Computed example of a mutant assay.
Amino acid sequence: MGEHVLRELFPDLDENQYQPAGIDLKLDRVFRLEGQGALLEGDDKRLPEYREVETESGVFELEPNVPYVLELAPELEVPEDTAALFLPRSTLLRSGVSVHTALGDPGFRGKIRVLAVNHHTAPYRVARGERVVQVVFLRAEDTGRYEGNYGR
Rank of each mutant, 00 (worst) to 15 (best):
N65D: 14
V132A: 06
R128F: 02
V59F: 01
V78P: 04
E75D: 11
L138C: 10
E80A: 14
S90N: 12
T82R: 11
V69M: 10
I23W: 02
L87D: 05
L93Q: 10
E130D: 09
V114N: 04
T143R: 07
L76Q: 01
T121I: 12
L70P: 00
R29G: 05
R109Q: 10
Y124F: 15
V97G: 10
R139E: 15
L138H: 12
L62F: 04
G58A: 11
P64V: 03
H120D: 15
R94L: 05
L25Q: 04
F108Y: 08
E130L: 06
E71I: 07
H119E: 09
E61P: 04
L138G: 10
E61L: 13
R139V: 10
D43S: 15
A84S: 08
I112T: 00
G144Q: 09
E130A: 11
E54D: 11
R51G: 06
L76K: 01
G144W: 05
E130I: 01
T55I: 01
L87F: 05
G107C: 01
V59M: 07
A38Q: 08
V126G: 05
I112Y: 01
V97R: 03
F108S: 06
G42F: 02
A102T: 13
L25C: 05
L87P: 02
Q36P: 14
I112R: 05
G104T: 01
D105K: 11
Y50S: 11
D28F: 10
E63Y: 08
V59R: 09
D28V: 04
A127K: 14
A38E: 07
